[in-house]
Write a protein that binds this DNA or RNA. Structure first.
Lengths: 193, 193, 193, 193
DNA sequence: GATGAATGAGAGTTCATTCAT
DNA sequence: CATGAATGAACTCTCATTCAT
């Protein structure tokens, strides 16, 4: 009855693991790291508390995996080849950002949430840097190609603005002037309407 | 021999209360609301756990007082008369922001931290709105005077940028291109160098 | 290897819940509500403090369950049909009372203890009234049938006497003149010896 | 200014001590021993917490003194000379009981409250016995003179009834049928109306 | 005699984690 | 693989008691 005879353990494991991470993300985003309990995550996932420890060795471990997955998910959209990157694509990237904010609300919320908590940052900052650094490099190269005198600084400036707008959107989506901000960004960077 | 005078007691209370709030600010900024324990705040202040409850009725009360004090402290600098506000003063305001970020690191950090934690936001959001709303109104009036077609939206856009730059500074002060960003803001708003 | 069946879990829960209530009853009876600590109840039950909260949501909850269970247990014996109630049965009821006092010492002790503590009374007084009221009504009807002019007052008088004798028994069982008191009650109510 | 020059320390001490005991009695009766805090007692007395420890060495000490004083206060009325005790005086004693219940509600409430808490009882039970025993002896002698075959048992029976009626009155004074119960007692003991 | 700031032990409660099944 | 009963450390908070003034 009880012992599985199936040979597809691997698939089951992968799926369950994913399910747990998804559930954890939702709860972390809603309650923050400390406010999220393993019990709630388990019941969100529809499994028992104990089973979670079959897949992750600690709550911190779940957070780390959740974050890394989330960051990769978000920031994969910001990779491009600076040499062939066009203004049109730049516009698309900006517009994409706000689409993602809507679709992946939890991922973004947790991203900002984590930026603010020293202890949590320490857990994942190396990994986060691994993800962000190449993106900054891409933008630096792109701005350099465009003739900016200080391309690294401009890349950071641009990144900060995107963060600020995203934060503002996350905090109060209903009152955020999305179209207006997109147009302002276009005008700042002389992009095609 | 004789009882302390009530004046002496008042002094002690005022000082200790301030000490506790200062210590709480540091710990909240470092660990977030849930991560900060009364024990740690007490030991940061060099007093016993119990004493804290002689001054505040709950942890939430400490947070509230900390935040309200902090927000008032930070945002008092952003009040101005839109009718007489000059570009030179606008420049000063921008430069002031980065000075404040340096000087009041903890206050700002906790400000952003709180924006991200739903539960904490609920505790103080009314008070925060009371503080932020008039500032947005001032900027709206100012931008309207400058001829912006959508002054409210511009005020929000500007606020989001300031938040983004501040967040970026807070997260990694050493690599933040402060001068560059100030100059970029000046150019975006056609301000005098 | 295999998970426990839900039937097994149910058994464990039922037993442990019962164990906790039994232990709580003993401690409440000995120390009163405020004097009884969760720690002591847990150690009386031979379990950890934490486990108690797996079964009850608060100390007050434990008290409520303890009391309601106890009161129902005690007072179920005092329900009868006033129309068919005989003097012989009345005698039995009186004798039963003292038997119960011996057997359910803790239940009775806590009953009296609770009567005296305003705060505790507030917690369960509605429930207690639900239990006691019909009993008083039964006695009222019975005394009315017997021809008492003020049956409600007599019911209260009788109840008070039973309480007084019980209290006296509980306080010092060894010196309580049980047989004598039973006979005195019989004579007061003209009951058969 | 501060050091008293007066020589009437003794009077001040006696008065203050009495004030503290009065206040403690009120609070103990309202909240029970554990529920009553030194702070509340102090503020009921209009003095500082610290001062209480100038007069009593512990909270338990206050309770003990409160109780002994209270019991002496209550039970002084029940001393009489069995040889000269008349039925008329017996009636008076019964009626007095209910008067006292009204006037000294707190004393009585705490008396019953204490009877139920083993730990508290242990603190004062010797003293209480010293007070109660001679009263029981008096009633025993009186009932013996009246011709009761088992005067000690009757004394205990009578005491229990008084306790029961008192308890009933204390618990719910408004619905207690005072006159009815007095008359019933008179009829049971063949006393003049 | 009198104050209340200060302490520290212990209260009720939560929760990450373990483990027998 | 899966369960949830069980633990224990740490949490927020209370309060009897002490002590400098």
């Amino acid at each position: 009855m009880c012992p599985r005879t199936s040979h597809q353990f691997e698939d089951i494991r992968k799926e369950k693991r994913h399910l747990i991470l998804e559930s954890a993300l939702v709860i972390f985003a809603k309650k923050g790291y400390h406010g999220a309990s393993i019990s709630i995550i388990a019941s969100e996932a529809g499994i028992s508390k104990g089973l979670i420890y079959n897949y992750f060795k600690s709550k911190e471990d779940i957070l780390k995996e959740t974050l890394i997955g989330g960051f990769e998910h978000i920031f994969q959209h910001y990779r491009f080849d600076p040499q062939t990157f066009t203004p049109k694509e730049f516009v698309n990237l900006i517009e994409l950002t706000f689409d993602l904010l809507e679709k992946d609300h939890s991922h973004w919320k947790i991203y900002f949430s984590v930026l603010m908590q020293t202890e949590v940052m320490e857990i994942i900052q190396d990994k986060l840097m691994d993800i962000l650094f190449p993106i900054i490099e891409d933008f630096k190269a792109y701005f350099k190609k465009l003739g900016y005198e200080k391309p690294l600084e401009e890349a950071r400036f641009f990144g900060a603005i995107i963060d600020g707008l995203s934060l503002s959107y996350i905090t109060d989506p209903e009152n955020f002037p999305k179209e207006y901000c997109i147009n302002r960004l276009k005008s700042i960077y002389n992009l095609p309407l």
